[in-house]
């Protein structure tokens, strides 16, 4: 495909949404202090790069009864995984339901490699999703425009504006109405999912988007949704659509 054809196809996928200087959307990166920004931008200083390196090693390690590694089917991740994280969650044809990137990795491991299931938020799952995520770094968030995803995305939008917890907050009250304001000491970001998994200084570890969302829910004194739940996948679908055209930064660093 020629350069012009590529540019045109990008335009048709993300009309009006590609980030321009007037775009009011800002990555969580923009709300961080200089030091934390510098840490994210320097691969040698970014602690999440260690997680990526573990993922790179796992990519080529055969495991499970089938004796295969990820690379046995997908080859060079640099080629085959480019842009993949930018379009998840996507539709799982088999179930007719959306599946997130961790869900897909788990599926490959179990059905194709016949390997023991990977625990969500476990070290290996974070490593593989960070490594796959890195292959989309610098690319625009590109949610699939599949009609069948629409009801799930709408459910995500509903959850985003539903009051929750003893403090009775909605996600939108903080992240739309009050983004940029201070909640105690913390500036409230716009809740874009474009840098996950991240290394969070407060956690002193790498964590997924869902871990971040659980933190927000616990903060509102709500019972958080569980890892891999339909609710979280719906929320992620909605957040990705909201961040359409923004640049993937994986792996991010956050305070």
């Amino acid at each position: 495909m020629g350069w012009l054809a590529l540019a045109l196809s990008l335009l048709s996928v993300w009309p009006a949404q590609a980030q321009t200087p007037q775009d009011p959307r800002k990555s969580g990166f923009a709300y961080m202090g200089r030091d934390t920004q510098a840490m994210q931008q320097d691969d040698l200083a970014n602690p999440a790069m260690l997680t990526v390196l573990e993922g790179e090693a796992l990519w080529t390690t055969p495991t499970g009864k089938a004796g295969k590694s990820c690379a046995s089917c997908h080859g060079e991740a640099r080629e085959s995984m480019k842009g993949v994280a930018a379009r998840y969650p996507s539709l799982d044809e088999a179930s007719g339901k959306p599946i997130d990137l961790s869900g897909r990795i788990a599926q490959c491991r179990e059905t194709r490699m016949e390997a023991a299931p990977l625990v969500r938020e476990g070290r290996d799952m974070l490593a593989l999703s960070a490594f796959v995520g890195l292959q989309s770094r610098g690319m625009p968030v590109a949610p699939p425009q599949d009609e069948r995803l629409r009801p799930f995305r709408e459910e995500g939008a509903r959850l985003y504006t539903a009051r929750m917890g003893q403090l009775n907050f909605t996600c939108a009250q903080c992240h739309d109405a009050n983004a940029g304001q201070k909640l105690g000491a913390a500036p409230i970001p716009q809740a874009h999912p474009n840098a996950y998994p991240i290394y969070r200084l407060e956690w002193q570890s790498t964590g997924s988007l869902q871990r971040r969302l659980r933190n927000c829910m616990v903060g509102t004194r709500a019972e958080p949704f569980s890892y891999g739940s339909a609710e979280f996948i719906a929320l992620e679908l909605f957040l990705m659509e909201r961040a359409k055209g923004m640049t993937i930064e994986t792996p991010g660093v956050r305070p």
């Binding site: 539903a162 009051r163 929750m164 917890g165 003893q166 009775n168 907050f169 829910m217 004194r221």
Partner: peptide
């Protein structure tokens, strides 16, 4: 309003078990 209801327990969603049924 974003201000939490400090003396209400009805009509709240998914309150975490340790806070359920208790006003703030």
């Amino acid at each position: 309003t974003i201000m939490p209801p400090y003396y209400r327990i009805e009509g709240l969603n998914r309150v975490a078990p340790n806070f359920r049924g208790k006003p703030l």
